[in-house]
């Protein structure tokens, strides 16, 4: 791993055994089916996709919250996919997580200060006497008052609660924060505040983020590199500028086509080619390209032969047999 990389994920697979299959054998959910990526120090790596694509499972696998079926995860020199018990706890402070729902991810019976210092207590970081002070410093870092530490979660609004969750993630001075849909449960005005806070903390502390979202505009605002995920696999991955300037995978196009904007004319979606159907079941992924069943460009080759991620220069990779040959449906992408 080069010195500038903070996180490296190799051929990560997370499969869940969900019981007996009707015709004998086991039913396996292929939640994450072989993904590779690296996160550069101080940068944000975004993962977008629909629900069920496996993006949250990647987050949980990095955090070691679900068992990893195959592959490896390195945080700097530590192979965190192989650590257990105390040795995992020793590096736990370096990578922390912010969850989607700030209502269910805070213990209602713990005051804010206790919630923020809990990781320090559990991981035994720093002097016990100094931990309340650290917790209060974290409160100010996320834009809350030091005194707010004496309040219970229900005394905060949704946006403030998400600030608390960020403060808790920051307490152990992590280098990497995994953010799983951190603003999806928030109102737009509050969403803007939290997004700007995440950007500012990154600039101040040199944090790296793995940022998971279904919202392309939010990902574009936060991320340096982006992977588009479909049914357990990356279908396109590129530096954000390259992806949004010249996306090449039909699935990425369909996410872009479905995006709403206040500037759009009424009925814009109606004029765009929209994706029909819904993703197939991850228990029995199709043999060829997993997107073929919904892809307007799919051929027999797509249904039979699985496309691999191919490079298009500048770190832009696409898993589509016809990438680069197809006509994008959005006029903005044609010009580029």
């Amino acid at each position: 791993m080069s010195g500038t990389d903070i996180l490296r994920v190799n051929a990560l697979k997370v499969h869940f055994d969900v019981g007996r299959a009707p015709g004998g054998g086991r039913k396996i959910v292929h939640a994450v089916d072989g993904v590779d990526f690296t996160v550069r120090r101080g940068s944000s790596f975004g993962i977008v996709g629909e629900s069920g694509s496996g993006k949250s499972t990647i987050a949980q696998a990095i955090m070691r919250l679900v068992p990893i079926t195959d592959g490896s995860v390195y945080l700097q020199e530590h192979q965190i996919s192989g650590l257990e018990g105390q040795s995992l706890r020793d590096v736990r402070g370096k990578f922390q997580m912010v969850f989607q729902d700030p209502f269910s991810s805070l213990n209602p019976r713990k005051k804010a200060r206790a919630a923020i210092r809990e990781p320090l207590d559990l991981l035994d970081i720093g002097e016990a006497r100094g931990r309340d002070g650290v917790a209060e410093d974290m409160l100010t870092a996320v834009g809350l008052h030091r005194e707010a530490g004496r309040l219970f979660p229900h005394q905060f609004s949704g946006g403030q609660r998400q600030r608390l969750c960020i403060a808790r993630a920051l307490a152990s001075r992590p280098e990497l924060i995994v953010c799983d849909e951190p603003v999806s449960a928030l109102d737009v005005a509050i969403q803007a505040q939290i997004l700007n806070l995440l950007r500012q903390l990154q600039a101040d502390m040199g944090l790296s983020y793995v940022f998971i979202s279904h919202d392309l505009a939010v990902v574009q605002y936060i991320c340096d590199d982006v992977a588009v995920m479909y049914l357990g696999e990356f279908v396109e991955t590129a530096p954000a500028k390259s992806l949004f300037a010249s996306a090449k995978h039909p699935y990425t196009w369909s996410l872009m086509s479905a995006a709403l904007s206040p500037e759009n004319e009424r009925g814009t979606l109606a004029k765009r080619p929209l994706l029909g159907g819904e993703p197939p079941s991850p228990t029995a992924p199709p043999p060829g390209c997993r997107f073929a069943a919904r892809c307007p460009f799919a051929t027999d080759r797509c249904r039979a032969e699985k496309p691999a991620l191919r490079g298009f220069g500048g770190g832009h990779k696409v898993a589509c047999h016809y990438a680069g040959e197809l006509e994008p449906p959005l006029p903005e992408l044609k010009a580029a």
Binding site: N196, R199, P262, E263, E332
Partner: peptide
């Protein structure tokens, strides 16, 4: 002004403006 906008094609190459907050 606090709604993030998706910028595609040529406009994606420029760094977008910071989101204004309420």
């Amino acid at each position: 002004s606090c709604t993030p906008r998706l910028r595609l094609g040529a406009s994606a190459a420029e760094g977008g403006a910071a989101l204004r907050e309420i």
